[in-house]
């Protein structure tokens, strides 16, 4: 399939989706499903609304801080688990329990423990994404072969040098994959946490849900979609800049 056909098909898919949505929207009315034309108008209104813009920006900040903490904790943890059977035996049961535990269940007790402030959202984000970062890094660290490290040792490389020139390049694709999965979960749990305490984006969503028209609600969903896509795109750009050699090496889940 040539790239022009490919592009044409993609645009057709998008156009068909918008067309069906528009027709269904007109038929059902704004109260049930606002058509894209109404949503677009609402998007413009949202972009001109300084207060809404400020709220959205303020909501993203704790998600990014939480994501950074999750990476700072999860990546070393995963690497240690992958390289040391003892640490792995000690930590793996807990990590694999927490990764399947819905973070929503932990939310009520977190509210009790740390309240509903800024750090609450950070805590929810960390608790939801750190396990994915850890497990993906672990997958990479387990796959580092003994031979590669032995070569370094035979040439008298120091521990730090062996880490920097052998382990880090081998881990990099996995660190990137872990960061990407972690970021997805960070944004998901940010919305979840804010819906729970009705603040930030969650507050906006809740308020829009009370409207007679669903146009504003759908416009907010489009904004959140944009945040998600922009974040994962941005992460890819940062990775390309940090390690140009790894392009296309990212492992499939």
């Amino acid at each position: 399939m040539s790239s022009t056909t490919r592009l044409a098909l993609r645009l057709t898919g998008l156009a068909l989706f918008l067309l069906v949505w528009e027709l269904v929207g007109r038929h059902l009315g704004d109260a049930l499903m606002a058509p894209p034309s109404a949503v677009a108008r609402e998007l413009v209104a949202l972009a001109e609304d300084d207060q809404a813009r400020a709220t959205i920006w303020q909501s993203i900040a704790p998600a990014l801080v939480g994501f950074a903490i999750a990476c700072a904790v999860g990546m070393p943890l995963g690497a240690v688990m992958g390289r040391s059977p003892i640490w792995n035996a000690l930590l793996h049961p807990w990590v694999s329990t927490f990764v399947v535990t819905s973070v929503a269940a932990i939310v009520p007790i977190l509210i009790l423990l740390i309240g509903t402030g800024w750090w609450f959202v950070v805590a929810v984000v960390v608790l939801s994404s750190v396990w994915y970062v850890t497990l993906t890094t672990y997958q990479g660290a387990v796959r580092i072969e003994r031979r590669w490290l032995d070569v370094g040792r035979s040439f008298g490389a120091s521990r730090i040098r062996a880490f920097r020139t052998i382990m880090l390049p081998a881990l990099f694709p996995y660190l990137l994959a872990g960061a990407r999965i972690g970021l997805t979960h960070a944004i998901r749990s940010m919305v979840l946490a804010q819906l729970f305490i009705v603040s930030g984006i969650g507050g906006l969503l809740n308020e829009a849900g009370m409207d007679v028209s669903t146009a504003r609600l759908l416009a907010l969903l489009v904004v959140i979609m944009g945040i998600g896509l922009a974040a994962s795109h941005g992460l890819g750009r940062v990775a390309d800049w940090l390690a140009p050699w790894q392009r296309g090496l990212e492992p499939q889940r």
């Binding site: 399939m1 056909t5 490919r6 098909l9 993609r10 057709t12 898919g13 998008l14 068909l16 989706f17 109260a31 049930l32 944004i187 998901r188 749990s189 940010m190 919305v191 979840l192 819906l195 984006i201 969503l205 809740n206 829009a208 849900g209 669903t214 609600l217 759908l218 907010l220 969903l221 959140i224 979609m225 998600g228 896509l229 994962s232």
Partner: peptide, 25 residues
């Protein structure tokens, strides 16, 4: 090619964000 762009977009929306919309429906 037909479905990929639309589904990627919807997949990028956190599921919890759909809750107010689902309540309407």
């Amino acid at each position: 090619e037909l479905l990929h762009p639309v589904l990627t977009g919807i997949y990028a929306i956190p599921p919890a964000a759909f809750i107010p919309f689902l309540i309407v429906w």
